[in-house]
Structure formats: structure tokens, C-alpha cells
Write a protein that binds this DNA or RNA. Structure first.
Lengths: 355, 355
DNA sequence: GTGAAAGCGCTAACAA
DNA sequence: TTGTTAGCGCTTTCAC
């Protein structure tokens, strides 16, 4: 049971070489003669050496630089919450040699993503945390990062084929199903239902389409034929135009419920629904934005699904830091639970440490 | 922006004393003259010193011992989940010199709590994590721990008057309200509803009574007079007797729903309800036990409220470790969100790293 | 190619 | 009561 720890010094002694040589072998850096190499490798085989990571980081003066590539937090409350998570992780790691360099792109501008991603490659960081919401624009950069040997972690939106070190986020297909379940809860599944995409380019974002797919699948699984699902994509319209469209929807007497696929869109639709005075439309949306909290309390929004952007980003930095500093591999996937927020459990989410 | 790190050495220089003295002040160990003390405290005030924990653990050979005082995990699935959280925390802190010593008592035997708590005091650990489910039996031990200067953190059940370093758990009053909300969702609030306490000594546990209080309060706030709430305490009965009682309940044609206040009780009631064949009774219970998961999937249970025992225990160890190692104060309260589990979001909870 | 030696920031033992 | 110093295990530099 009681294994005494083996140090580099011990290996050196056993192999009959110096500490420096062992170090060179362990990290294959510097030049080592074949003879020495063999001796060290052999003793390494015979024993179970576990490097003391604490000593390693203390001894090394390297400071790691992590780049964060996300939408500009000052333009969007959802991303502001992500940024909070990053800041929190930053302070927790402050004692070590870490620096976090933010790179913000415009949520509505693919070009800006491109140019900012370019800056990231120029900065040549030791690790990257990125929310790749523009699929096509992001792809080539991951190839670059890979070529440069820079590890990257994705959050919010996954692109499995770029093989990130880790993905942090939710299963959006399931998310859509949960949305549908909440839609039907207690009111049956018959009538007209709408999925609303607002404020993002839904064609380019698997993101929203996945939610839509799950939503429809739930109905297909659970209901007869007595329902109708409509999808509306208001991504490119101005606010007044969106308002018109939503009002049109609400005019439908058979409309039973709306799922809004984005957090910001949820606020917008809530305000329109409130103005309309209609009380019997079930509204399900996303995330604990200020306005959404307000409308949930007011009973306009019936349910929110929480994506927990703050914690997503927080864990992203944590995983990267652990990987770089302690060579500790993060999970390949960290899929967050699909948290359902209602009037009654809302406060418990707001009070708890991580929301 | 660019804060360079402050070392003990720097403080010593600024204060005009030696690093030994600074160390003594920081940890108030050894003797320090008032004059030196003042000088050091003053410079400490002026700067923001963050000790390098890596260097500290490397330099120190102290190994901290944390005692964990909880119900025997092998006798109860809920507590088995707590234990998992402890194990996980243990591995995360493994690199530092930490050891965790478990002390298990019998969930159904107050005497065993007493004797095991006695063992804890004899072990004289550096910190204690405890789930004080027996109120009266626990009280005197906290006094002892306090006298011995051992910090303790409570989870699951709070006893504010013993002034723990931290409490980790849920607001049970709100939990009862959420239970009531889920009870009424989509089916209105009229009819007969029951709160069932099973398998624990509810008189001695504020725990369950708080949930009950919240449950009733919700109805008082939201409904007219067209409802009826009954409380049933089956704590001391045998399984067959419980079964009888529940069957009696189910015979009531006006019965609309049941809230079961314990996780184990939830399983039991589910099996009875399933056998009865009644499909229209709404059942709300607690926690992701294996059986509960089964009954939720089968549609017998409509909603589960997740208390997240694993994470509660995990954070307990974490807070203790941070306190001991980093002198970092944990939050006085860490109130967990009241997570609502449905058929559709269940998998996302099971898949996610922390459940 | 290799070994020796000086740190990294902190603790703890020792001398003064 | 105070200052000095030798580690902790590893990295990194610098002679040889």
C-alpha cells in the first residue's frame, strides 16, 4: 500500500546518470546518447514514476497564455454571462502563471469572426477557448490551430469533426425535446405550435436547427395527428418587422404555444406577447437574462431552459488550465443538464453560487 | 493591469522584517513582537497578497486529514451518491497532501450516530464534513468540535445555531413550494393532495416539515378553497403497513396528487401506485435513485426534484480543503438550485459530469 | 552530451 | 522574539 514516491533523483541514481539526463529523456529535449537513453528507459520501465506536478509548475517559470474567442459580451447579455465565468476562472488561477487574452467578435458579423480568429493565430497562445457559432467560418481556423499544435476547447456550439480537446455545452436536440415536453405539459399536444428563431443566422447554425429537430421529434413520438408545427425564421428582420410577424402568429386562435430558440429572442417575444394581452399562449424560452427573469416572474414566460453560459465558460478555462499546467485531460464531452426554470424554483437558481 | 506577484519575501522587505516573521504573522504561529506584527499587518493591508499554494504544499510536509460523518452509504442509495462526491473530491485533491477518513453511522439508529461521532472526536481531524440528520444527538458534538478548534461544514440538513463554517444544501421550504407548483401544473389546484413522509423520523427532522410547510403555502397563495391537503406520516411503519395506508389513499376518487418528501419513499410509493394501475395521480418525489429513474421513465412519477447529494458532498470537501490549505473562506450558505427532472431532461442529468 | 547548480515560493528547524 | 537556512521535486542554465 505504502508506495514511497519516486523522484527524478532516484531514477538518475538507479540508471547511473545525472538528473539533467533523466529530465532530457522524460521530455525528450536536448541531446542524449543512445547509451544513456537506454539506461534511463530501462529503469523507467522497471518502476512506476509519477512526476510531481506541483514541483513541476513551481520549478518552471513558463506563463501560459489562453486565448478566448467569443462574441462581444458588451453587445449581448448571454455572452456577458459567459465572460463572467471566464473572469471567475481567471481569478481562481491567478496565483499561477496564467494570462487570459480575450478576442471578441461581432455576434452578427461573420467577417468579424474571421478577422478576430486571425488575430488569435497571430497571438499564438498556449490554448484556446472558443464558441464557434459560425460553422463555415470557423472550420479553417481549427485546421490552423491543429497545425500550430495549439489545443482548443469548444463550448456552446459543438463541431465534432474538428476534434476539440473537449466540448462543453448541451445536447441541443434533447433541449428541443424538453421544450416540447414543457409545451405540452398539462395542456395536451393538440393545436398549433411554433418554433421561432430570432436574431441569429439559423441556416448556418446547427445550433438552432437541432433544437427545432428535437422539438418536432417529441411531437412525432407523443402525439397523434391533431397538431401542427410551424417554424419561423426571423433572423434577418428588424425589430418592428419581427413584431409584425409575431403579432400575426398570435392572431391564430388555435395557437397553443411558442418555443423561442434564443435567449434574446425570448425577451423580445415576451414583450410582444405581454402587449397582446393574450394569457393562454404557452411560452418557452432560454436562459436567465434579466428580461426573461422579469417575464417569467410576471407569468408571461412559462418555462425557461437554462444553458448556464457562465459555468460553461468557467469550466472551459478550468479544463484548459488543468490540461496545460497539470497535463490533466478534460472529459471529451461535458454535456450540461437541461435545467428547467419555473416561477417557483427561479429564486433558488438566482441565489445559488453559480448562477 | 500587470500585477506582478507578491511573495513573502516582498512583504518582508516592505515591512522591514525577515521572511520568518512574515510567515509567523500570516499563520499566527510562533511569537511576534507587537511592533513587527503591526508593520507586517500594515503592509499586508496595502497590498494584495495571494499565497502560492503550489509552493506551500511543496514546502510543507503536513498532510491534512478530513473526517466525513455521514450515514452508511452501503445501506442507502442516496448516501451512496454523497459518497461518490466525496471520492471525486478526494481524487481531485490527491496531488496535495490530503486524506479523507470516513465515519459511517446507521441512518436509522441515533445511538450509532453518537458512537461514531465519538470516534471522530478521538481521531482529531483537521476538518469535518457532516450530515447531521439527528438533531438532538448531533448538538453536543458540535460543541466539542468547536472546543477542539476543528472547523466543520454541514450539508443536507442545516443546524444554523451550531454556526458551521458553511452549510450546503437546499432551501427546503422553497422545495415544498416547487413540489406544489409541479402538482398543479396544467391540472389546476383543486382536489385532494397529500404530503407523504416515509422512512424517517419526521418529528425530529425539520427537514421534512419544511417541505410540507412550503407545499401548503403554495396552495394558500395560489388557490381558492377548492382543495384539500392531507399530511401522512408513515415513518415508523413496516413496508406492508405503509402499503396498506397508501392503498387507502389511492381509493379516494378525488385524490389528484402526492408529494413524497424522501427519496426512498418516492420509490416505494411509485411501486404501489404502479400496482394500483391508477394513471391519473400526479406523483412528485425526490432524487435520482435507480428506482425513481425507472418510475419516471415509466411515467409513474411525473416529476423529481433533485437534491444533488453527490455535488453537495463534493463541494463540502472542496470548501474544507480550500479553507485548510488556502485559508479561503467558503460561503456561509451554498443553497443549491431546485432542479426539476422530467422524462425529457432526465438523460441530460444522467449524462452530465456531475450526476 | 552531460552533470552540477541555481532557482521557483514556501515551510520548518535552528541559531542567535 | 527574530533572522537564516536547508530543503520540497522539478526546470533550466551554464560550464565542461
Amino acid at each position: 500500500m505504502e508506495k514511497k514516491k519516486i523522484r527524478i533523483k532516484d531514477i538518475a541514481q538507479l540508471a547511473g546518470v545525472s538528473i539533467g539526463t533523466v529530465d532530457r529523456v522524460l521530455h525528450n529535449r536536448g541531446k542524449v546518447s543512445d547509451e544513456a537513453l537506454q539506461k534511463v528507459l530501462e529503469t523507467l520501465h522497471q518502476i512506476d514514476y509519477k512526476p510531481n506536478l506541483i514541483a513541476r509548475t513551481l520549478g518552471s517559470k513558463k506563463t501560459y497564455r489562453i486565448a478566448v474567442l467569443i462574441p462581444d459580451p458588451s453587445l449581448d447579455e448571454y455572452w456577458a454571462q459567459s465572460e463572467q465565468g471566464i473572469t471567475q476562472a481567471e481569478t481562481e488561477w491567478a496565483q499561477y502563471e496564467f494570462s487570459i487574452e480575450p478576442f471578441y467578435f461581432n455576434l452578427y458579423d461573420k467577417e468579424s469572426f474571421r478577422s478576430v480568429a486571425e488575430e488569435v493565430t497571430e497571438a499564438n497562445p498556449d490554448g484556446i477557448l472558443v464558441a464557434p457559432i459560425f460553422y463555415h467560418e470557423a472550420l479553417p481556423y481549427f485546421q490552423k490551430f491543429k497545425d500550430m499544435g495549439i489545443p482548443y476547447i469548444l463550448f456552446n456550439t459543438n463541431i465534432p469533426e474538428v476534434e476539440p480537446l473537449s466540448f462543453i455545452g448541451q445536447n441541443l436536440y434533447s433541449s428541443g425535446k424538453v421544450g416540447a415536453e414543457l409545451m405540452c405539459l398539462g395542456q395536451g399536444g393538440s393545436g398549433n405550435f411554433v418554433v421561432l428563431h430570432i436574431n441569429e443566422d439559423s441556416h448556418n447554425s446547427i445550433h438552432l436547427l437541432e433544437k427545432e429537430r428535437g422539438f418536432k421529434e417529441y411531437f412525432a413520438e407523443h402525439n397523434g395527428t391533431d397538431y401542427n408545427i410551424k417554424t419561423l425564421d426571423l433572423g434577418n428582420l428588424k425589430e418592428t418587422a419581427i413584431e409584425k410577424e409575431v403579432e400575426n402568429l398570435l392572431a391564430d386562435p388555435k395557437l397553443k404555444g411558442i418555443l423561442v430558440s434564443t435567449s434574446k429572442g425570448t425577451s423580445l417575444v415576451s414583450s410582444i406577447l405581454e402587449k397582446s394581452g393574450k394569457k393562454d399562449i404557452r411560452l418557452v424560452g432560454y436562459d436567465l437574462l434579466k428580461e426573461n427573469i422579469h417575464y417569467l416572474r410576471a407569468g408571461i414566460i412559462d418555462f425557461l431552459i437554462n444553458q448556464n453560459p457562465k459555468r460553461q465558460a468557467f469550466l472551459g478555462i478550468n479544463y484548459l488550465a488543468n490540461h496545460l499546467l497539470l497535463k490533466k485531460a478534460p472529459p471529451h464531452f461535458d454535456l450540461f443538464p437541461l435545467e428547467i426554470i419555473t416561477q417557483q424554483n427561479l429564486e433558488s437558481y438566482l441565489e445559488s453560487t453559480f448562477h
